[in-house]
Design a protein around this nucleic acid. Sequence first.
DNA 1: CAACTTTTGATTGACCGTCGGCAGAACTCC
DNA 2: GGAGTTCTGCCGACGGTCAATCAAAAGTTG
Lengths: 394, 394
Amino acid sequence: MTEELTRGVPRPTGAGELFQLLRDGRPRTRADLAAVTGQARSTVAARVDLLLSSGLVAPAGEAASTGGRPPVTFAFNPRARAVLAVDLGATHARLAVTDLAGQVLVEHHQPLAIAEGPDVVLDRVARVGTELVREAGREPTDLVSVGVGLPGPVDHGTGRPTNPPIMPGWDDADVPGHLGRLLGVPVLVDNDVNVMALGEHASTYPEVDHLLFIKVATGIGAGIISDGQIRRGAQGAAGDLGHIAVPGGRDLPCRCGNTGCLEAVASGSAIATALRSEGLEVASSSEVVALVRAGNLAASRAVREAGRDIGGVLAACVSLLNPSLIVVGGVVAEAGEHLLAGIREVVYRRSLPLATQHLRIVTTRTKGRAGVLGASAMAAEHVLSSAAIDASLG
Amino acid sequence: MTEELTRGVPRPTGAGELFQLLRDGRPRTRADLAAVTGQARSTVAARVDLLLSSGLVAPAGEAASTGGRPPVTFAFNPRARAVLAVDLGATHARLAVTDLAGQVLVEHHQPLAIAEGPDVVLDRVARVGTELVREAGREPTDLVSVGVGLPGPVDHGTGRPTNPPIMPGWDDADVPGHLGRLLGVPVLVDNDVNVMALGEHASTYPEVDHLLFIKVATGIGAGIISDGQIRRGAQGAAGDLGHIAVPGGRDLPCRCGNTGCLEAVASGSAIATALRSEGLEVASSSEVVALVRAGNLAASRAVREAGRDIGGVLAACVSLLNPSLIVVGGVVAEAGEHLLAGIREVVYRRSLPLATQHLRIVTTRTKGRAGVLGASAMAAEHVLSSAAIDASLG
DNA sequence: CAACTTTTGATTGACCGTCGGCAGAACTCC
DNA sequence: GGAGTTCTGCCGACGGTCAATCAAAAGTTG
């Protein structure tokens, strides 16, 4: 008995809303758009002209004739502008200039200690970013926004980090203000794992509305997409999986002061520590991955065991959030199928059938690019939203 | 650098959107509304006239004069229509007729076995509901919608139960169709715990955007409100806390086939079972509560211990969702502070400070009414949304 | 190649909603 | 009680959207 609520309401579809229809990149004719929006051809034509003049929409050739003059089609033109995507980790930075659809134009990777503080780091980011825009063959004016992922909790509304544990000097730093002054465009900031979740969603699974992204690296964290949107919780701290107690897990001490946290048991550093106690020389997460790839059995077994521990916590997440997709990323996910096997084993055993029957668990296919892709998507969204388009077209 | 996106955009505030401003019940003058919406006085006046004619808004006396003619104020008139709220449990039904703000006009409580199947139960609901409308002194035409809470997973989009474990014969039953034909109004259906979460939110904590409602009764379940909305997940199965493994919990077998599930360890029936093994005669959750209230120490201890187990799982929920409020309901919550004490103890110990610093954990104050209040809110929302108002006045 | 079909762009008048001004009503202040 | 202030209902002006029309363009079909 759910009634059709939109019936009879002459929805005021401005140019911005018309643009949303075209954002999927599929070419459409004026007649298509008029049919979908219910507006008069003349109105649609005016809107299309406006969008054409902005460059955000471009002609996309002719469609097949149905007996008369073939109609011209139009499509979103992602290359009209560019955005800067910034993915900052504890010890390195990855920057990219992308088009408005997340296509990477140029990319840059460099060591950069976040501990040097916001002034040093953000100045560097702005300088390298400006250079990258030039390298991409774009004018400085092509840049319309910046997206930044930071390795710690961020209040997305203000763009300020809140009590970040591994970013000394960054607490409450005005990242959007600082970068915005240097680059002259709006700056969006979020926690790196949220940004990666967004990147996975935008680049690979746009049709999945309930997605959980898990980053397994030195630490462990998650980004939650529910009903198509990032969920950040009351303080922007949602998705902090690392300090959930592993059911049936070993009672190892964690840096948070508790024991048995997922991070203490199954993170990259925890795996490395465990392997060292077996006499192997492993210092970091990436060395664990290297060992696994080299065929070391102890390392494979440890990664798989970590997968089971992570699976224990993810099973709780599945029961709680009922996602249809879990994407596993972070360096440790590069260790092949071992991690995933452990995760799947426990999640499918410990969750109810209703929640798992349509659940897929996969590793990321973005090859370390989830962060920049998400930062790009976040920045692009800010500029391409219906309201933003309407505002920019006057 | 987050720009003001709405600037310059002449937002098309129809009568429906204007109404949303008045929904808080506070009286406002035409001038107030014009100032807030940015529309001309004449436009606002026309909208107000429309809303007045529908009865949904009514004059609310004059405001104090500021030196000239005193302005007339208007306010939402919740008593203009009525909704039927239905809260169905495994063995009893609670129905209420409420106004559009969730004020209960008449209430009815009766034993009703859900196992009798949808035809019998829904026919009964429609008959009692019609009678209640009369008892409330309302015309049948005053009834505008129905909200129903069911004790099992529901696809909220279609209103059909999906593989409910304790509702034989209800799988994929067309609840909205059946009730809608009998009562002639739209019917909204959801899982009972979601509905209770909504009830708690609407009736007591409307300003809290991130709320977790836990029902502790024969089973254990949760309703998640995130960014102000119920989150149901991909199959509508979100919030299914009952079968999450308790960290460090006993390995008791659960009806789901696994062991160590929260429900097997800490539900009302689990507590009763544990107490029976100590030689006490307890058959149900409510008898556990009665024992606690009578001052039985073993029962108090068992409830507190159950609280700790629940706290273990809730700590994971807090890390994952970062709510600002957890409301504990269900019969077991009526056992006083013992349950809450156990929950608080573990949640505050096992969660990170950022997530807990503004977290409140409370017991419901709705006295078993959370279900009908939520059903009422769900039904009212369907009729009072901006689009619905526009459609009904258009 | 001619006849027909369909799209495009431009123009037009009708319609509707919003805006701002104006006159009258209702109240306060002196 | 009069002057000033503020609210309310009414009216014409303005601007955007719509449907209709037309001529030109660019195809298809026989």
